[in-house]
Design a protein around this nucleic acid. Structure first.
Lengths: 148, 148
DNA sequence: GCTACATCCTCTAGCGACTAGAGGAGCAAG
DNA sequence: CTTGCTCCTCTAGTCGCTAGAGGATGTAGC
C-alpha cells in the first residue's frame, strides 16, 4: 500500500524481473512471443521494461506452469481472470480437467513403478544371461502387463 | 522350434512387422535412423525386410519404451543383452535409476495433485472475482507450496 | 498388358515448452 | 576509453515421435 519506491516510473528491465519472479530471461521473451505476455514497452535503447501488472501476470503464469497447466490452459485462465464478473465455471472446468490429467499420469506411473520394481527385485545380480531385467524386457509375457 | 513357415526366407516387410509388434511404421524407421535398430536389409525394390532377430529386438525396444525407459537407456540395455556373460550390474543400475526417476515423478505429481485438488474443492462456483482457482494462481502465498 | 490400389520409399516440418549459442548493441563504472 | 555486464535478435537443438508431400514399387483383377 505504501507507494513511492526507488525504481518507480518506467519499470524493471527483464533481468530484474527474471530474478524477482524466478522465470528465466529467455522464457519471459518466449512467453511474449507466444502471446501469454503482452509485448513489453521498450526503452530508447530497445530494452523491455516491466511494470507491476506485467510482473503479477508473469507470477501467475509461473505458478500455473509449476502446477503443470499447459500454455493453452493458462491462456484461458488469464483471459478469465481479466473478467471478474464472469462465472468461474470455466476456470473450475480447466482445473478439473487438469486434475483428471494428473490422476491418469499418476496411475500410469504407479503401474510402471510396480513393473520396474519387480524387475529389479528379481535381479539376482549375476550374469546378463539370467538377468531378470533383460529377460522381462525381452519377453513381454514375463511381466504383469496391467496397463501397457 | 518348428521351422518351415509361410513367409520364410527374406523376412517380413515393414508394415507386417508394424502389425506384429504394435510399433508404427515411421517409428520403426525412426529407430533405425537413431541406431536402435540396425539398418534393415533391402529387397530389390529398396524395401526393408525383417527377420526374427530384428522383430525380437523391436519388441524389446517397444516393451522398454512402454516402461518409460529413454532411448539412450534402451541403447545401453540392448548392448548389454548382447553380452550374456557380462555381469548384469549395469542393467540393474539402469533399471534402478529409472525407478528413482519414476518415484520422483510420482512424488511431484502427487504434490501437484493435492494443490490442484484443494484449489478446485474451495471453488464456490460463483464469480471469477472470488474464485479460488484464479486466486491461488495469482497469489502463491495462498497455496501449500510443498515442492514448488 | 493395363489399371487400381496398397504399401513402400525419402525428405522436410511440426509438436510443447523451452534452452543454448552466435553475433552484436547499449550502458554504467573506473 | 576500456572493461564487463546486460540486453537485443535470430537460429538451432532438445525428446520421441507424427504428419504430410511427392514419388516408386508391388500386387490383384480384368
Amino acid at each position: 500500500m505504501t507507494a513511492s519506491q526507488s525504481t518507480a516510473s518506467e519499470g524493471l528491465p527483464i533481468g530484474a524481473v527474471s530474478k524477482r519472479t524466478g522465470v528465466k530471461v529467455p522464457t519471459i521473451r518466449y512467453y511474449e512471443e507466444v502471446g501469454l505476455m503482452p509485448p513489453a514497452p521498450r526503452s530508447d535503447g530497445n530494452r523491455r521494461f516491466y511494470g507491476e501488472a506485467a510482473i503479477r501476470r508473469l507470477a501467475f503464469i509461473r505458478h500455473a506452469r509449476e502446477l503443470g497447466f499447459e500454455i493453452e490452459a493458462i491462456r484461458d485462465l488469464l483471459a478469465l481472470s481479466a473478467e471478474p464478473q464472469a462465472s468461474c465455471e470455466a476456470a473450475d472446468g480447466i482445473a478439473l480437467r487438469h486434475l483428471a490429467e494428473i490422476d491418469s499420469k499418476i496411475a500410469r506411473l504407479t503401474a510402471l513403478r510396480a513393473e520396474v520394481a519387480r524387475m529389479t527385485e528379481q535381479c539376482s545380480h549375476g550374469r546378463v544371461a539370467e538377468c531378470r531385467v533383460i529377460e522381462v524386457l525381452a519377453n513381454h509375457d514375463a511381466c504383469l502387463h496391467a496397463t501397457h
